[in-house]
Simulated scan of single mutants.
Amino acid sequence: MGAENNKPRYLYIDNLRLVMIILVVLIHFGVTYSGIGGWYIKDVKELDTISYVVFGLFQSFTQAYFMGFLFLISGYFVAGSYEKKGAGKFISERLVRLGIPTLIYMLVVNPFINYVLLGFTWDRPIFAQYYLKYIISFDFLGSSGPLWFAFALLIFNLIYAMIRLQTKDKVPKGAEELPGTGKMVLLGFIIALVAFLIRLVQPIDTSILNMQLCFFSQYIILYIVGIKAGRYDWFSKISYRTGRRWLLAALLPGTLIWVILMLAGGALSGGFDLYKGGFHWQSAGYALWESFTAVAMSIGLIGVFREKYNRQSKLTKLLSDNSFAVYMFHAPVIIGVSIALLPIEMYPLAKFLLATAIGLPLSFLLSNYIFRKIPYLKRIL
Rank of each mutant, 00 (worst) to 15 (best):
L165S: 09
D205P: 00
I104S: 02
M211N: 09
L187Q: 05
S320Y: 03
S207K: 12
S363E: 10
G37K: 10
I41D: 02
L47F: 12
R306C: 04
M346N: 03
F140I: 00
Y223V: 10
Q59W: 02
D233Q: 13
M20N: 08
T32K: 05
A79G: 06
I190W: 05
K237G: 05
G68C: 10
I339H: 03
F120A: 14
G285D: 11
S367Q: 05
K168L: 12
I224V: 15
L315P: 01
L141P: 01
L117S: 01
E176Q: 14
G56M: 10
A296I: 06
L57A: 14
I221L: 15
A325Y: 00
A284D: 06
L362F: 08
Q129Y: 08
L47N: 02
L186Y: 04
T181H: 11
S60E: 07
I136W: 12
F90W: 01
L360K: 00
D14I: 03
T316F: 06
V225D: 06
S137C: 01
P8N: 13
L274R: 15
Y105S: 11
L377I: 15
I344A: 11
L360D: 09
V19M: 14
L154D: 10
G266M: 07
V326N: 05
R245F: 07
Y40G: 10
S51T: 11
K183M: 09
E345C: 00
R199K: 13
G254W: 00
A152I: 12
L117W: 00
L247Y: 07
L107D: 06
R241A: 14
I163D: 03
R94F: 01
G271S: 04
Y347W: 06
K42L: 03
P125I: 02
P101G: 06
A150I: 08
D14K: 09
Y40I: 07
S137V: 01
S323M: 14
L274P: 00
G180D: 08
Y369M: 03
W246D: 09
F66W: 10
K133P: 00
Y40T: 10
S92E: 08
V31A: 04
Y219M: 13
K228R: 14
G2E: 12
V326Y: 07
I50D: 06
A250N: 05
L16E: 07
I198P: 05
